[in-house]
Measured scan of single mutants.
Amino acid sequence: MEVRTIKVFTTVDNINLHTQVVDMSMTYGQQFGPTYLDGADVTKIKPHNSHEGKTFYVLPNDDTLRVEAFEYYHTTDPSFLGRYMSALNHTKKWKYPQVNGLTSIKWADNNCYLATALLTLQQIELKFNPPALQDAYYRARAGEAANFCALILAYCNKTVGELGDVRETMSYLFQHANLDSCKRVLNVVCKTCGQQQTTLKGVEAVMYMGTLSYEQFKKGVQIPCTCGKQATKYLVQQESPFVMMSAPPAQYELKHGTFTCASEYTGNYQCGHYKHITSKETLYCIDGALLTKSSEYKGPITDVFYKENSYTTTIK
Rank of each mutant, 00 (worst) to 15 (best):
Y269H: 15
R4E: 12
A154I: 04
L212P: 02
D62P: 06
V203G: 06
K95T: 14
P34G: 09
L186M: 15
E239Q: 12
S79L: 13
A177V: 08
Y57E: 05
V304F: 01
D303A: 01
L121E: 02
C271V: 08
P249V: 12
Y72S: 09
K316R: 15
S310H: 15
G202A: 03
S240F: 00
S171Y: 15
T292M: 09
C261Y: 00
A145M: 03
G161W: 04
N100V: 06
M244R: 02
Q98L: 13
V58G: 05
R184K: 02
H276I: 05
T211E: 12
C227P: 00
T302C: 09
F259Y: 00
T258A: 11
L17A: 09
Q98N: 11
A247G: 08
E264Y: 02
K255N: 08
Q98W: 07
M207C: 08
D63C: 07
H18A: 07
F242T: 01
S104H: 04
E71I: 07
H74Y: 05
L65E: 08
D109V: 05
S310W: 09
V243D: 01
R184A: 15
D62W: 07
G164F: 02
Y297N: 03
P78H: 10
Y138E: 15
K316T: 07
A117N: 04
T116H: 06
L118V: 08
V21Q: 12
L133M: 07
E168N: 09
M170I: 08
G267C: 08
F217W: 07
N89W: 08
T226K: 15
A150Y: 00
I124V: 08
S86L: 12
Y265N: 03
V188Y: 07
Q98A: 09
Y284E: 11
N100G: 14
C156G: 06
E253V: 09
D23G: 11
D109M: 05
D77V: 04
V166N: 03
A145W: 07
T5F: 11
K7Y: 09
E125T: 08
S295G: 12
I45A: 12
Y155R: 02
V189F: 08
V21H: 12
D287G: 00
K127A: 12
C156A: 07
V67I: 14
A205C: 01
C285N: 08
E239V: 13
C156H: 00
I286H: 03
Y269G: 15
Y36H: 06
C261N: 03
T313W: 11
A117P: 03
T232M: 14
T169Q: 05
V221S: 04
A115Q: 10
I45F: 15
H18S: 06
A108Q: 09
T103V: 12
S263V: 11
C156L: 08
I277D: 00
A231T: 02
F70N: 08
V58D: 04
A145F: 02
V12N: 09
E204A: 11
Y28C: 07
A142P: 04
E296P: 12
S104N: 06
N16G: 07
G29V: 06
S50K: 12
K229F: 09
L173H: 04
Q237R: 13
K7R: 12
V8W: 04
Q197S: 12
F80R: 04
R66L: 12
Q222W: 06
Q251G: 08
H273D: 00
D63K: 07
E71Y: 07
Q195A: 13
E264A: 12
G164N: 05
V243G: 01
A69C: 14
T5S: 13
Y234W: 09
T11L: 05
F32L: 12
S295P: 10
L114Y: 04
V166Y: 06
G143S: 03
Q31T: 13
Q238W: 01
V160R: 05
K275Y: 00
H18C: 07
W94Y: 04
D63E: 14
Y137W: 08
A140D: 03
T260P: 01
T43C: 12
Y72G: 06
R139D: 11
Y234F: 09
A146N: 02
E71R: 10
M244C: 04
E125D: 14
G143R: 03
K233N: 06
L151C: 02
A132C: 07
L65D: 07
K92D: 03
T302N: 02
L200V: 13
C112R: 04
Q123G: 05
P78M: 10
Q238P: 00
K92V: 09
A231F: 01
Y73C: 03
K93R: 13
T5Y: 12
E2K: 11
M170Y: 03
P249Y: 00
D62R: 08
K201Q: 11
K293E: 14
D38K: 09
A40L: 14
R141M: 12
T19P: 14
N100A: 14
G257Y: 01
V8I: 12
P34A: 10
G272N: 00
A262L: 00
T314K: 15
V3N: 13
T258D: 13
K293H: 13
Y96F: 12
M26G: 11
Y84G: 03
K191M: 10
L151M: 07
R167I: 02
F32D: 06
N187K: 14
D41F: 06
A140K: 04
S181R: 14
D63R: 08
D23K: 14
T10G: 06
T192Y: 10
E52D: 13
N187P: 04
S171P: 04
Y36N: 05
V3Q: 13
K44Q: 14
P249M: 02
K7D: 11
P47D: 02
T192K: 12
Y269S: 15
E296C: 14
D303Y: 04
G161F: 02
V160H: 05
L200I: 10
K93T: 13
Q238R: 01
P34H: 10
V236N: 02
L59G: 08
T43H: 14
S310F: 09
A231Y: 01
K218M: 04
H273P: 00
F259K: 03
V160C: 08
G161A: 06
A108I: 07
D287I: 04
W107P: 05
Y214D: 01
D109P: 02
Q31W: 13
D180S: 11
L121Q: 01
N49M: 11
N157C: 06
A115K: 03
T258W: 03
P300A: 12
A87M: 05
W107S: 05
T10N: 09
A205T: 04
L114H: 02
P78F: 08
K219Y: 06
E2R: 11
I105L: 06
S213M: 01
P300F: 15
A231V: 03
T302R: 00
F70M: 14
N16S: 08
T75P: 05
M209I: 15
V203Q: 08
Y274L: 01
A146T: 04
L283D: 00
I286K: 00
G101M: 02
L17I: 07
E308H: 06
S240H: 01
V21I: 13
C190W: 01
Q197F: 09
Q98P: 06
K307R: 13
F32A: 07
P97H: 12
Y138K: 15
L81Q: 07
W107I: 02
H48N: 14
H273G: 00
I223A: 13
K219N: 12
Q237C: 12
G272L: 00
V188I: 10
N147T: 12
T266D: 11
L186C: 10
K95I: 14
D135Q: 10
K229A: 13
L59P: 06
T278L: 09
C182L: 03
M170H: 05
T260M: 14
H273L: 02
L235P: 03
A115P: 04
